[in-house]
């Protein structure tokens, strides 16, 4: 594709693998853990964060020459908060049950470190188009982990995926039972820990001495 120059492509794809916001930069953990007990809220959350990150990156990048650096945090927060209010109202209007189950975590997208981190590190110093792609890329990288964690937690914890039963009844008849522990918050941390373990075994340059 012509419009994806090398730099743009890198902005889009590097956060998905080698520079993943959750696994490498350790940002945006709070929501990763709290909304992933089921796949559906995890997916909605991932989508919302991706939209907010991309649009906020775009807006801040357009305004980057006009923002005095002393008050940039406030400006960024206002932009992000306005976008999150929009997302919140849309979720309430179209997927009310998911919006209820996400409860305060929609509001907490404002304080999601990924968004602030990308605004500070990328959007303030780059043109709108790469910033937008960077936002999409980071949103995808974040969403990927959310969906992996949500997949395992819902499958092992309640034997369902997206609310449909996938573990057949005869398994239960032969003594299989759902692992109730995996639904509880602490297991989410341990799953993310294991994902980090796998990821760093592959990317040895990231290992700490």
């Amino acid at each position: 594709m012509a419009f994806l120059s090398k730099k743009n492509k890198e902005a889009l794809t590097s956060p998905i693998g080698a520079n993943n916001p959750i696994l490498v930069q350790i940002l945006g953990i709070c929501s990763t853990l709290a909304v992933t007990a089921k796949l559906k809220p995890a997916f909605v959350m991932a989508l919302s964060v991706m939209v907010v990150t991309a649009v906020a990156n775009l807006v801040i990048s357009l305004m980057r020459k006009g923002i005095p650096s002393r008050i940039r945090i406030i400006v960024q927060l206002v932009v992000v908060a306005a976008l999150v209010i929009l997302v919140d109202q849309i979720l309430k209007a179209f997927v009310y049950d998911v919006s209820k189950s996400l409860s305060v975590f929609v509001g907490l997208i404002i304080t999601n470190c990924i968004i602030m981190g990308r605004l500070e590190a990328f959007a303030l110093g780059n043109k709108p188009m790469p910033s937008f792609l960077d936002g999409i890329g980071n949103g995808l990288g974040y969403g990927m982990i959310l969906i992996i964690v949500g997949f395992f937690r819902e499958l092992l914890g309640s034997g369902q995926l997206w609310g449909y039963q996938v573990i057949p009844q005869w398994c239960y008849d032969h003594g299989y039972s759902n692992n109730g522990l995996i639904i509880l918050p602490p297991m989410a941390l341990i799953i993310v820990g294991i994902i980090i373990w796998v990821h760093r075994s592959k990317n040895t340059s990231l290992q700490e001495k």
């Binding site: 602490p186 820990g193 980090i196 760093r200 700490e208």
Partner: peptide, 23 residues
């Protein structure tokens, strides 16, 4: 600690274990 688990990895797992204790 195994090398890939050093730093954030082991911290996550410990936090998980502490969370279980707090349960």
């Amino acid at each position: 600690v195994p090398a890939p688990l050093k730093g954030p990895g082991i911290t996550f797992i410990i936090t998980g274990l502490m969370g279980m204790a707090f349960m």
